[in-house]
């Protein structure tokens, strides 16, 4: 089969390449989605934009990296440890910073999480230098071939782990009493409070869960991606796009938007040009924001 390319209609491309791009985009999209859902959860709960989200991703990648270097623990096995560490970071961020600025003007809220981002990034540069690092010989490496399609095994495992985390999060939020209380707090915090729901604790829990999601994504990324202090910036940008596309506070919206971004990025890279892939993603974002400001699945 032959697929025509947009800029060069005379060049023919095999359908394998397209399917390859779809599979890679899908797997990367699952990681984007898990990063985005943490951001979305925190915003949906208390209308605070976590500008330090990418830095928490970077932190979790470094935690994963150092656990591998110092203890020899593979990123796949250290997920629970890294998730627990980031959940603690979430509690600390809420009780140390966020709860004090909940009623502050928006500019103060922006400065607080943005300042946290800069502080964490600078600290990482100070402690670990700006070097690019990689994990050598992770437990899962190499690639498998299925009908002419090559899938990197770390990417495949990462996608599956992220999907599992996503399903777990969705079940927790929609099926447990605590999850219902989280939703109630997001929808009307005063009504939740007068019914006896400790809203401040729910906020803290939202931060812990949101950052634990980032931790799972970060652990998985560290197995096949460079680990360096600025690594979070690009992922955070994509997460903002995903949250805006999916609708603030919508879990399934984040999933759909994350996957869409992964697909658009990878297909755009193949069909048009890899150097334009970010342009296509942000162009899509711009179009959706103009046409449907509440996001594709948004309520707010």
């Amino acid at each position: 089969m032959c697929v025509k390319l947009l800029p060069q209609p005379d060049i023919c491309m095999s359908s394998d390449v397209i399917i390859q791009a779809i599979v890679s985009g899908l797997l990367m999209g699952l990681i984007y989605a898990l990063v985005a859902v943490g951001l979305s959860l925190i915003f949906g709960l208390m209308e605070i934009v976590n500008f330090a989200h990418g830095e928490f991703l970077m932190l979790s990648m470094f935690f994963s990296f150092w656990l591998w270097v110092l203890v020899g623990l593979d990123p796949l096995l250290s997920i629970p440890l890294v998730a627990a560490a980031l959940a603690i970071c979430g509690f600390a961020t809420h009780y140390g910073i966020v709860r004090h600025i909940l009623k502050a003007p928006m500019l103060a809220q922006i400065c607080a999480t943005f300042g946290l981002a800069i502080a964490i990034r600078s600290l990482a540069q100070f402690l670990w230098t700006p070097d690019f690092r990689t994990i050598q010989d992770p437990l899962v490496a190499g690639r498998i071939e299925i009908g002419g399609i090559f899938i990197g095994q770390p990417q495949l495992v990462a996608g599956l782990v992220c999907l599992t985390a996503f399903i777990g999060l969705w079940l927790f939020v929609s099926r447990t009493e605590t999850g219902l209380a989280l939703q109630a707090t997001a929808q009307d915090r005063e009504a939740a409070a007068v019914m006896g729901i400790p809203t401040d604790r729910m906020f803290a829990l939202g931060w812990a869960i949101g950052l634990a999601c980032v931790a799972v994504a970060g652990s998985m990324l560290s197995a096949f991606y460079f680990v360096f202090p600025d690594v979070g910036i690009n992922f955070a940008l994509l997460a903002f796009v995903a949250v805006a596309l999916g609708g603030f506070g919508s879990i399934m919206g984040s999933l759909a938007a994350g996957i869409s971004i992964g697909l658009v990025e990878s297909l755009g890279g193949v069909l048009i040009s890899p150097s334009y892939k970010s342009l296509i993603v942000f162009g899509l974002y711009f179009a959706v924001v103009l046409i449907r400001p509440t996001g594709l699945f948004g309520r707010y």
Binding site: A184, A191, A192, V194, G196
Partner: peptide, 23 residues
Amino acid sequence: PTHHRAGLGIAHVLERRRVFPHL
């Protein structure tokens, strides 16, 4: 704190109903 007061036997039905719309 507010969330302790329900346990004291006080229920407050807020102005404009304030049900959780998406539940």
